[in-house]
Nucleic acid binder design. Structure first.
Lengths: 193, 193
DNA sequence: CGCGACGTTGATTTGCCTCAACGATTGTGG
DNA sequence: CCACAATCGTTGAGGCAAATCAACGTCGCG
């Protein structure tokens, strides 16, 4: 069952007893998502934490000029949510879209709060996860300030080799903050070496 | 006393009983920092969470070309730490430097863990804080992808008006990811309007 | 006083974008 | 299963935002 995946994920961080597993099972829901289907669109409130059981998503913003900017990709065993909208309960400015046919486990805010209230270990679990993500994001920002597009591309290849087969170059370009055309030129230059 | 500031800070998020206040008082230390003095230098392990009681710090990286890139400024009632190095206990790549004469409260890792273990509310407190910081950082990254330098500068003015009097333009330029020369041109252009 | 940080300005360069065009590939509806 | 559309990758020409390098005046500070 899909929920097993989630339980295994938590158990990597903390121990769960039978009661907690029961609560988990009864308080999450499983959704199957088609390619190009949205978990969240601009203007909607983000009402769930989404845990990716299988497949892959991108979370991105569309700027006033109509261009997409990828904030992150989320594959198996990762969480994807617009934390800002989830907290403030204001409309999101982001999209979360399936890149592949996917399965996710969703937790509603009230249920997440239930876990926070009754089992503080979940606070810790999500604190640790987001601290790691925060460090990643800091490094990414530093890199966009201090490195060329080519360096960022190479570092992307290095950091996310498993994503390469699953993503068109267009999406990678958007993630590292350049145009597809320019990425193409970078790749050409690299292959010349 | 300085510790009062920290207690007030926590009380904005959670309630503290007498015992917890006692533990806090006995497990933190207070340091006075001169202008241009470092809380952390590249190559050192980051061993403390630092809470700014008074004054102001910048956390930045020096890239291979020798240029500084400001990750953040931390003033009164904010935390400043290289979370990555703090967790992994590997040498940091960052500097934390006082911009003004400052006072900080430091918590060592073992003491922070003590609070996490014995009073889970601290997990929640720091989870919430970092979730907010994470959202901020995401927006900043999106902005560097989708906005011009002038827009980022205006948005900085908008978001951190209280920092303006305390920072030279050089530091702002580094924060928004441009050179001081170019910021000067932007400001000239803006004043022309 | 003198030195180093700061702000400014000019001339030049460059990394990356824009727009446009084209073939190859993928996917989709009839 | 084919035909057509949409997405994708590539290439060229030209343009622009921002960096670089250099010079100079000001100010605060030790």
């Amino acid at each position: 069952m899909e929920i097993e995946t989630l339980i295994m994920h938590f158990k990597a961080y903390l121990s769960l007893n039978e009661e907690e597993i029961q609560e988990l099972s009864s308080r999450v829901s499983i959704r199957t998502i088609k390619r190009r289907q949205f978990l969240l669109s601009e203007g909607e409130k983000c009402k769930h934490y989404n845990f990716v059981v299988s497949g892959c998503f991108k979370m991105y913003k569309i700027d006033p000029a109509g261009k997409e900017h990828n904030l992150l990709f989320a594959c198996e065993n990762e969480w994807v949510t617009d934390i800002g909208s989830f907290h403030t309960e204001k409309p999101s400015e982001l999209y979360i879209e399936a890149i592949e046919p996917s399965t996710v486990i969703q937790i509603k805010k009230e249920d997440l709060l239930f876990f926070y209230m009754n089992y503080p270990k979940f606070d810790r679990n999500f604190r640790v996860i987001i601290e790691d993500k925060f460090v990643e994001l800091q490094n990414r920002l530093l890199q966009t300030f201090s490195s060329t597009a080519e360096e960022r591309y190479l570092s992307f290849l290095d950091q996310y080799p498993h994503l390469l087969q699953r993503l068109p170059n267009t999406q990678i370009a958007s993630y590292i903050g350049i145009t597809p055309e320019f990425l193409s030129r970078i790749r050409k230059e690299l292959s010349r070496k």
